[in-house]
Design a protein around this nucleic acid. Structure first.
Lengths: 147, 147
DNA sequence: TCAAATAGTCAGAACTTCTGACCATCTTGT
DNA sequence: ACAAGATGGTCAGAAGTTCTGACTATTTGA
């Protein structure tokens, strides 16, 4: 039984479960055949809206440059996860949309998230999980640049 | 006034304030003259114990390979943040220790953390912040590979 | 209509991270 | 004592990620 740890800085307390969630979701996906997704690709992939998203939107919300987002979308496209289509409302823009394989991967990712949520709720209890989520949601007001 | 957002996945709720903390700490450091630290370097730097740490320890706790940790420590050493010394208790090992500039940077980093903690406490109130921290600490039991 | 803003790409470089191979030192079982 | 394996660390090479800067095409607004 480990000695109770000295209290860690809050950012580290945030990071530990976040990293766990990222790793376990990626493993979940890999186990279901989506084993060619890297973390960076997944971060962009996760932000594609159902109606499709513009590259610039993806870049902003994933906090990378347009160039980086373009590079990652190229790879997602090569992997059959997404496709690009012209944006009817703006001739400069193109919409990045989920392709068939992307839809399947998204479903698997949702599944992983639900599983994770259930695991955490089982460990903390619904009351404490809600307290954490509510507190974090309130923190967004001062920490979320895209609110 | 934005429409209330649909509830986000818990991992994203964790990530948003974490990223904010990382960015604002790095800015805090840069503003005080430690402007040559990259994120990757800082992640290793943050894990150096007062008595010094072995490369392998740093690699494990930062979740990178020994090679990567070695590369980053090389850069920290070149920047004057750390120095390597022989480990008296093991001839194979060398201890990575803070150098003078590293001590100063660490003090500035602590300062940034305290400031952040105070900011968050002011926004949430001590009670809610504690509820979040307690919940996250409990989550470590199932998410921290190094517990 | 023309200047500015926006969407996106291309090119090149820097940074981060990995795998695999390797050497030196320590630890353990016999 | 000593060989075998474990551990600490490095070197070499490659892949992946991300950036800055420059550029084209299209849209928007005065």
């Amino acid at each position: 039984m480990p000695v109770p740890e000295a209290s860690l800085p809050t950012p580290l307390l945030l990071f530990i479960p976040y990293r766990y969630a990222e790793n376990s979701s990626l493993q979940h996906l890999a186990a279901r055949g989506f084993d060619d997704l890297t973390l960076a690709q997944a971060r962009v992939f996760a932000r594609i809206a159902d109606e499709g998203s513009r590259l610039t939107e993806l870049a902003e919300s994933a906090q990378v440059t347009k160039q980086t987002a373009g590079y990652l979308v190229d790879q997602l496209e090569a992997g059959g996860y997404v496709e690009r289509a012209a944006d009817p409302s703006d001739g400069r823009a193109r919409l990045v949309r989920l392709a068939t394989r992307g839809e399947q991967a998204r479903a698997a990712a949702m599944d992983a998230l639900h599983q994770l949520e259930a695991e955490w709720e089982a460990h903390l209890g619904p009351r404490r999980l809600k307290a954490v989520r509510d507190g974090l949601a309130a923190l967004r007001e001062i920490t979320d640049p895209y609110l």
